[in-house]
C-alpha cells in the first residue's frame, strides 16, 4: 500500500502521486514517511524531498521550507517554494545565500536578543545552503 504524496506550492500543485516512501526534510532531521505513519504536522526546513519507488529514489525535489501534514494514508507538503533538483539554478542559490547572510548579519547588528527573528534569518541561510547543495547534486 503506497502513501499518497502531494507537494503544493502557493502558486500551483506540483506533484500528486502515490509513492512507496517519501523522505522529507523536517525541522529536526530528515523524516521518512511510510504508509501507516502516525498523524503529524511538521515544520520543514530547506532541503530536498526524495521519492522512493520500488526501492530506488525516483525523484528529488528541492523545497525552500514549509509545512507537511502526515496521516496514515497521505503526506501533504505545503512548500514555500519547490523545484525538481535538476532545475535549481546555482547562481540563484548563491545570490540567495549572500542575501540571507546579509540579512542575518543585519539582524545581529540590529537586535541580538530577538531570538525568533534570528531563528528565521538562520532558517533562510539554511534554506539557501540546501538550495546550493541541490544545485550541485548530480
Amino acid at each position: 500500500m503506497p502513501v499518497a504524496l502531494e507537494i503544493v506550492s502557493p502558486e500551483r500543485l506540483l506533484l500528486s502521486r502515490p509513492v512507496d516512501m517519501a523522505v522529507i526534510p523536517a525541522s529536526e532531521g530528515e523524516m521518512g514517511v511510510l504508509p501507516g505513519h502516525a498523524p503529524m504536522i511538521v515544520l520543514l526546513r530547506g532541503g530536498t524531498i526524495a521519492l522512493y519507488e520500488s526501492g530506488r529514489i525516483t525523484e528529488k525535489l528541492y523545497v525552500a521550507g514549509g509545512f507537511a501534514e502526515v496521516t496514515p494514508e497521505r503526506c501533504t507538503v505545503l512548500a514555500d517554494e519547490a523545484l525538481p533538483t535538476g532545475e535549481v539554478s546555482k547562481a540563484k542559490a548563491q545570490a540567495r545565500l549572500a542575501e540571507a547572510e546579509a540579512a542575518y548579519a543585519a539582524q545581529v547588528a540590529a537586535d541580538r536578543t530577538d531570538v525568533p527573528a534570528l531563528d528565521l534569518a538562520m532558517a533562510r541561510i539554511q534554506s539557501a545552503r540546501a538550495m546550493q547543495d541541490a544545485a550541485e547534486a548530480p
Binding site: 529536526e28 502516525a38 498523524p39 503529524m40 504536522i41 511538521v42 515544520l43 525568533p116
Partner: peptide, 14 residues
C-alpha cells in the same frame, strides 16, 4: 490526534 514537530506554537507562528 496529531503530533507536532517541533511544537504547536512554533508551527503556528510560521
Amino acid at each position: 490526534s496529531y503530533e507536532f514537530e517541533p511544537d504547536e506554537e512554533t508551527i503556528l507562528a510560521r
